[in-house]
Design a binder for these strands. Structure first.
Lengths: 356, 356
DNA sequence: CTTAGCACTCACTTTCCCAGACTGCTAGCG
DNA sequence: CGCTAGCAGTCTGGGAAAGTGAGTGCTAAG
């Protein structure tokens, strides 16, 4: 075991520049970068031999990796991480591109699902990578209106509307006949006391409280049905994940290998794992893109991938997450600018269509 | 140009058996089938030389193809077609498997979306192929209930419920203030005259008729809003397509070629084309699986694929289509049995959860 | 009509070899 | 003391050459 060399901030200016250039070049070409390439294509002012010495040290310090003895160097997770955190210039979208994005966004209608689907499509299209989108959480939505609809003597349809639109319909089958007037009274009572609360708050106690003073009292089986309906509407564990643009993976040379491709597609199919990783990527309240590189994902078989994620909002509530999953060798600056712009557009649209 | 040889039903018993065996063997092994393999593995009672003569004739008649001079034979589109239509034994699922399918179906809840998603998942899982599902059409659903909900003075939420659940919510912004009572009267009038009709029938005239006798008359802008709401709910052109199990394609040797894989994934992404093909596959009223083999799909770049499709129902209305897209070399008998069973389960469940 | 035998074809695999791309090291220079 | 030119060494990837084997079509005889 060689003595561990210092890591971290002590990269002198030249080493930093060399690392930057290698990451840049490798992202562009997908080929390991050699010392000669660097001196030829970039103005370094020193010979390739000097670069070789520097590269050897960068490798010893863990920023670079050599695929095999007679190849150039490739950035390691640490190399990319340093690049992303400290070396990379901040990019923003060309105004033309950001205009186009905004216009295409406007094409989606006013339905939440449609808007989120459009976001997925656009994100994958513009990023040329796999887009992963966690659909709006239900329990963070604000309850707006309840309607109990009489279907038959022992059959009631409960429709719960949040400010994001209809969240839930649920058939209740009470043990006694109910009549429409009774249902109207119950609906009104619930609307009066619960309107404006988060779905997450509408538990058994809240519903029972709201209905406590109804005269004549509702039958317990109907109340239970309403409670079950809210519980079902809330269920935070089952959130849909949308995907788009899997075919772009085929364009990356790193996925010209069926095993790697397979592990990504399996991940997509499984959903659960990816769901957790995407949520993990978002620190509470952070509204800048979070980046996880290669091994940082802590997923087997996808150490060749990176994930860029950012939350989106409706009003001031964070509802879900956008993410880009792609080769570790991705243009991080562009991806971060793109996903931030997409999240902005999405949040803006969702906020616009929120019910009063 | 050689004189064209007779096609069609004149395959004698032995030729039919040889063709059957070749298709069977090729489906199992994915390797071109040679005369020696046939005599060794199957009891044909004649020598390989005889088989060679027969195979040469089957090829001349268009049932078989030889990938190259020194290889065995592979079925052509015609070969598969003959196999599927006239030679293949009808399969049905093992009762154990069909039980398992039924049980897993029951795990989905009572929401239409959930049920259809579960069908997609199960179909891809059991078929080990790409499942393509056209989500329930809206305009074939039966209108059950309308609710106009007062949100603010010039803002009304319209919720349309079909027997399949909530079909549409739509914000109407009338040009005058409205009050809740007015909305209740309008809701009642619409429910009285329109309940039980198909969404497709709820056009401008139907709505105007239903509201004709309301006193005092509703403001035109509100009526227009309601009409627009129904129109939006109907829109038959925008039907969601669900996919599942793309990763299974990677298991087929015929897709160990990035170009072919790419064309299929592109097809998935595009949706429109696939949507048309899948719908085309279903003759009106047919309730047996339809099969389209290779070139019969009339799609470039996917001549290596076949599609098996079948409609599903809610009650007696056909709502959408299930399909399996896979390699042309697929076990047709099993796929047909499987998709029929899946469609049965799906139709059954949808019918069960239909509102009274 | 069937079959044994045979010559022929052609894809696939293995082996081998070479060119090329890099590196690390050393020794000399400013 | 850092920088550089030069050189030897290493490894990959591609391409040619050669051998292997599966499979065919044809012929002639049963």
């Amino acid at each position: 075991m060689p003595e561990s060399l210092p890591r971290g901030p002590e990269l002198d200016k030249r080493k930093a520049y060399i690392l930057t250039t290698i990451v840049y070049e490798y992202i562009a070409t997908a080929e390991p970068v050699g010392s000669a390439t660097l001196t030829q294509k970039y103005n370094l002012g020193v010979s390739s031999a000097t670069i070789r010495n520097e590269m050897a040290e960068l490798e010893a310090r863990g920023y670079l990796v050599q695929p095999h003895t007679s190849a150039g160097r490739v950035p390691s997770d640490t190399g990319y991480r340093t690049y992303v955190d400290r070396l990379m210039p901040t990019e923003s979208l060309a105004s033309e591109e950001s205009d186009r994005l905004r216009i295409e966004f406007a094409r989606a209608g006013r339905a939440i699902d449609e808007i989120v689907e459009q976001a997925t499509r656009l994100l994958s299209q513009y990023s040329q990578n796999l887009a992963v989108v966690v659909a709006p959480s239900r329990d963070r939505q604000t309850f707006r209106h309840l309607q109990l609809i009489w279907l038959a003597d022992r059959s009631v349809l409960m429709v719960a509307v949040t400010t994001a639109g209809v969240a839930e319909q649920h058939v209740i089958e009470p043990l006694v006949d109910v009549d429409p007037d009774e249902l109207t009274r119950a609906s009104n009572a619930l609307n009066r006391s619960l309107s404006g609360k988060l779905l997450a708050e509408l538990d058994r106690a809240a519903v029972a409280d709201a209905l406590a003073e109804t005269e004549p009292p509702l039958h317990a089986s109907l109340i239970d049905g309403i409670i079950a309906g809210f519980a079902h509407a809330r269920r935070p564990e089952e959130r849909r994940i949308l995907f788009g643009g899997a075919q772009h993976l085929l364009d990356q040379p790193e996925f010209r290998d069926f095993k790697k491709l397979r592990s990504i597609l399996d991940l997509v199919e499984e959903q659960r794992t990816l769901y957790n990783v995407v949520l993990d990527s978002i620190e509470r309240g952070e509204s800048t893109p979070s980046v996880r590189i290669g091994g940082e994902l802590e997923l087997e078989d996808v150490s060749e991938c990176s994930l860029v994620a950012i939350p989106y909002r409706m009003g001031d509530r964070s509802l879900g997450v956008l993410a880009i999953l792609g080769a570790r060798r991705m243009p991080y600056g562009r991806m971060m600018a793109l996903i931030a712009a997409t999240a902005d557009n999405l949040s803006q649209h969702l906020t616009d269509v929120e019910l009063p």
